[in-house]
């Protein structure tokens, strides 16, 4: 009976640990939500920060983050999808493919602060964009590029080969097959990757530290060469280096909640999309 006891003990411990873990994680969310809700109001979302960032709102940070999100996606999405198509539809298993995949993995693993360094050296200094939405978007775009490439590849892999063959049999070229059959079918999953990367972009701080983020700039950006505030950096500033950290605490809770909600909306919708899509594929 000894082995029974050890099984019960081991699984019991695992159960407790797992629930503990999920409990702690849920606590983090709950904590931010409860404290943040008190701070959020219409004014908070639509006003400029004021009084040394202890009152007013976070409008420029929200707008700035949206700009960066949009900017980086405009750049990374087309390149990522085209690259994914090439890797999955055109390239056979070969040294080149392994090399390209290794490079993509490598890029995916590079710490975000290194992207910040690189963005500063290339976009801000060498290309003379200065601290600007352009420089920040390009840096963030390069960072999420591997995510988009991978999800595109995965999405296209799920398209059954029989459809490609059927298309060829009707006299379609490879290009036509890709753009008329494979891509439209894989699109929902490609979009999942897009949404996930938007969530990631909106939360990253380190890459924008030296490429775009402004400590305090109570106006909305007017061109891609402007600096801007951004939500994650604003939270960092409020928590660690505001003019009056205690007084700006409620602002910090509010900012954190807005940031979390934004990221969660993206992740949840990506999840929903994926689930819907996988059901559709199964039905076939």
């Amino acid at each position: 009976m000894n082995k029974k006891v050890s099984e019960a003990i081991a699984f019991g411990i695992f159960r407790v640990l797992s629930f503990l873990l999920v409990g702690v994680l849920a606590l983090i969310l709950l904590f931010i939500i409860v404290r943040g809700v008190e701070a959020i109001s219409w004014d908070f979302l639509t006003k400029m920060p004021s009084d040394g960032m202890t009152s007013g709102g976070i409008l420029p940070a929200i707008v700035g983050t949206l700009c960066l999100m949009f900017g980086s996606i405009v750049f990374a999405f087309p390149i990522g999808v085209l690259s994914g198509i090439y890797l999955n539809e055109y390239l056979k298993e070969s040294k080149l493919k392994r090399f390209l995949r290794l490079m993509t993995n490598n890029l995916a693993g590079i710490p975000s602060i290194v992207f910040g360094l690189f963005g500063m050296a290339l976009f801000v200094n060498k290309l003379n964009f200065g601290d600007s939405i352009l420089a920040g978007s390009l840096t963030l775009g390069l960072m999420v590029l591997p995510v988009i490439i991978r999800t595109t590849e995965e999405a296209l892999k799920m398209v059954p080969n029989s459809l490609r063959v059927a298309s060829y049999a009707l006299g379609a070229t490879r290009l036509q097959t890709v753009f008329r059959i494979v891509l439209p079918i894989g699109m929902p999953n490609v979009l999942t990757g897009l949404i996930l990367s938007m969530g990631r972009v909106s939360g990253e701080t380190a890459p924008i530290l030296f490429t775009v983020a402004a400590y305090f700039l109570p106006k909305l950006p007017t061109s891609i060469f402007d600096q801007t505030m951004a939500l994650p950096y604003h939270l960092y500033v409020l928590v660690t280096s505001g003019t009056n950290i205690e007084a700006s605490r409620p602002m910090a809770y509010g900012t954190a909640l807005v940031l979390v909600i934004m990221v969660l909306i993206f992740n949840l919708s990506a999840n929903l999309l994926r689930r819907k899509f996988s059901k559709k594929v199964k039905l076939k």
Partner: peptide, 22 residues
Amino acid sequence: LLKPVIELLSGIPSVVYGFFGL
């Protein structure tokens, strides 16, 4: 139920974790 919750947590920005830690 657990798996999506855990996946969701990997999406939370690091500043938010830092804030919580602080």
